[in-house]
Design a protein around this nucleic acid. Structure first.
Lengths: 225, 225
DNA sequence: AAATTAATTTAGATATGGCTAAAATCACTT
DNA sequence: AAGTGATTTTAGCCATATCTAAATTAATTT
């Protein structure tokens, strides 16, 4: 088994890789909240263990072995998040923090039991896909709500879980995964977005809209006024 | 917060204190599976933090502060054990291992949720008392099954959870907490014990009988043949 | 009371995963 | 092509929690 630290590095690298393609020392440093120099020495170690490849000054890339471990940790994380929400009613803005710790000590047996109790789910409470045991993951094709135009509508696919405050804010307007939304208007200069969620109308700040991802986008894109 | 290591030391000290009164360096070393020298240096640290008192070559004793932390960890451990057994059907010989890891990363909020979901339980699956949040614990008055005499009967109060094999063995004859048992005969020289559990009759080895604790013991003690 | 044995402590080493400060490299501008 | 600023790496240090080997203290035996 790998240390908690190693698991966290691999997970972070996987996520950055998916979002930005390449993963720099600084990006990792910021995401993990450690000094760049610490990242460099960990990279060296992970490279020796063949969990990633590294070209000096050029960033890292997970090997197959590294990705496998990353996906196992992510599977733990997301199963735990969903389990806590479903079975114990933990609010969706708190499940992430709890899962951050528990994911590293969850046994495979308990993982399987939770998976079965939840009916082999495919999405966590934030809409993120839960990798299967063998490391298959189906990422959704979605765009940030911030990129939508007036008149377009779609379905909330996924919401970033990095900030509990953001989740509470988003939750207040009912923007949970699988919810239909329609963009009514968009203010210029990265301004707020007015949208319909069911019968209700909400105004959402531009920054928050970066973190809400929409799938199944349809409708004639109108002008940004 | 304290490190996982510190929590484990405090828990171990609490348990040894309860069982043997005083807690020697060697006893801790054995219980924790670390070298005696390592125990000495940790004792020094815990003593500086005022979590225990130590007289050189004379063993240690938890302070009130140390005991409070020990009981918090034990509460976590036992709530987790019961939760896993009840909610996820984890067999009673596996819950201990899972709880050993999880207990150190459980939030107070989740502790409360599990406690509520279980209806504020007072015993874990092995019959051990679950301390309350404020650190109150009600230990049962019980004797080892090995000390019972033919003709006596009683109720299983608690079973040691230190060895999964033992738990499976004990489970096979239905010796779960709250089960009535009657001692039929006891072989001499610390020999096996024949007992009735419900309608069934079982023979139990003397060593295993050291780890099963009986309360409410009644009946005329007969001779050990 | 001295010698032996057992328990405990001290001293010094190791691995992990952080840190800061300084050096090296890269990327961009002029 | 050289200079500047940002990024990355190197070098060396620190804390935690282990270890082994040696020294000390306590307990027991003769």
């Amino acid at each position: 088994m790998y240390t908690e630290s190693i698991e966290n590095y691999l997970k972070a690298i996987y996520e950055l890789q998916r979002e930005w393609g390449k993963v720099s020392t600084n990006a990792l440093s910021e995401k993990l909240g450690v000094a760049p120099a610490s990242v460099t020495s960990m990279i060296k170690k992970l490279s020796e263990k063949k969990l990633l490849t590294h070209k000096r000054y050029q960033g890292v890339k997970l090997t197959r072995a590294g990705q496998k471990i990353a996906l196992e940790v992510i599977r733990h994380h997301r199963l735990i998040e969903l389990y806590l929400a479903e079975a114990l009613g933990v609010p969706w803005d708190q499940v992430h923090e709890e899962a951050e710790k528990w994911e590293h000590v969850l046994s495979e047996d308990l993982e399987d039991r939770m998976d079965a109790a939840l009916g082999h789910p495919t999405r966590d409470p934030h809409g993120s896909p839960i990798p299967s045991r063998d490391g298959t993951i189906i990422e959704l094709d979605s765009i940030p709500l911030a990129d939508m135009r007036p008149g377009q509508h779609g379905v909330v696919a996924e919401v970033s879980d990095h900030d509990p405050n953001l989740l509470r804010y988003i939750g207040k307007m009912g923007l949970y995964p699988k919810t239909r939304v329609k963009v009514v208007s968009v203010e210029p200069f990265s301004g707020p977005i007015t949208l319909k969620v069911g019968d209700a109308s909400h105004v959402l700040g531009a920054e928050a809209a970066q973190y809400v991802f929409i799938t199944d986008v349809k409708g004639n894109p109108g002008e940004v006024i």
